[in-house]
Design a protein around this nucleic acid. Structure first.
Lengths: 195, 195
DNA sequence: GTCTATATTCGGATAGAC
DNA sequence: GTCTATCCGAATATAGAC
């Protein structure tokens, strides 16, 4: 009765779904508004009404996905006890997400936001990455992770897994990421674990 | 006497230097041929004469830098004995290169080649990365590196250092990369070293 | 809010003189 | 090999009816 439940702006969402696919496969600049209009079934005029301009579409998409990712990280973070378990769960979540929603992962990791979202801070400074660093910091305080520069620890711990994700997105991995999880995690954790 | 010695095509090289800077800062699509012409001092007609079209410029630049990188990797590879030393020297070389020629590194790591070089294979399949994997494979044969999936080992060993480079290029590292080399390498090597 | 038609700008590419 | 001038298509964005 309070009316609006699943009745989200339908055309808005259709456009966002469409641009995710188009940006991920062809890139931002190679995607024209005509493409977006045709694929989404929403007229150009309507698109401008909702998003202002082309950059507005990309910006909306980016923030939506970024928040979604942050929320997932938060949930994983709260559900797990030790820093070791938290981080492993994060890697597993990222791997699963890559297989389930490769387009999302592709956009988040690969899209050169700087080129079409000039105002946005670099991806390493974004909320999700900051959260991951916070967990690593905690790991040093609890003694699970060796004391060292925080950035070094973060990149060492998550750098390998992230490159595996990129390899998978590039289509150069023969099997699903889950197949590699144990080995990848073993390496990642060894790199920073206290002796 | 055999004539042409340092007399490299001057305008050709000027264009390549210019586009490296422009592509790295503004991206391929945001760089127009007018920009290139203005910054390089070479006329548009001349540019087309040399490179055919805009993609040709990017392609030439990419292959030039890729070969340059491969040559350096080769030299480092031959100059060092153990796989451990080879890999450490590679990371050091990449770090030094990032500080000395950030634009080159930026283009090689960050440029979304897929978007403007459709024919090119993904960066992980490129010559430099293949060479790095070869060395890792050798490490498993000599027993320096634990037996595991080759891709996992490669991404684990070089993933951390590469993310550090990206962080540096993004301007989120306070100090030069050399400052972090020891710590980064310690982590990287631990991740794959035999016990 | 949605659409169609249209304006305007811009950038890649070419022609052709020198 | 280098340059200037120009063409042409395409893409963003707008106007304005419904």
């Amino acid at each position: 009765m309070p009316s609006t439940l699943p009745r989200i702006d339908d055309s808005r969402q259709r456009v966002l779904d469409t641009v995710l696919a188009l940006f991920s496969t062809h890139g931002y600049f190679a995607t024209s508004l005509q493409d977006i209009s045709r694929e989404s079934g929403v007229s150009i005029g309507s698109i401008y009404h909702h998003f202002g301009d082309k950059e507005g579409i990309a910006s909306t998409l980016y923030h939506t996905l970024s928040e979604q990712m942050t929320a997932r990280l938060d949930r994983v973070n709260r559900k797990n006890g030790s820093v070791h378990d938290k981080c492993r769960a994060i890697v597993k979540m990222l791997f699963d997400m890559t297989e389930a929603e490769p387009l999302v992962m592709n956009f988040m990791l690969y899209a050169k936001h700087k080129e079409f979202l000039p105002g946005e801070p670099p991806i390493c400074s974004s909320k999700p990455f900051a959260l991951m660093r916070d967990i690593v910091r905690m790991g040093m305080e609890t003694g699970e992770i060796r004391r060292m520069d925080l950035m070094v620890a973060s990149t060492s711990l998550f750098g390998g897994p992230i490159r595996m994700i990129m390899a998978r997105l590039d289509g150069v991995l023969p099997a699903q990421l889950s197949r590699y999880l144990d080995e990848v995690w073993e390496c990642a954790w060894r790199s920073v674990a206290a002796d």
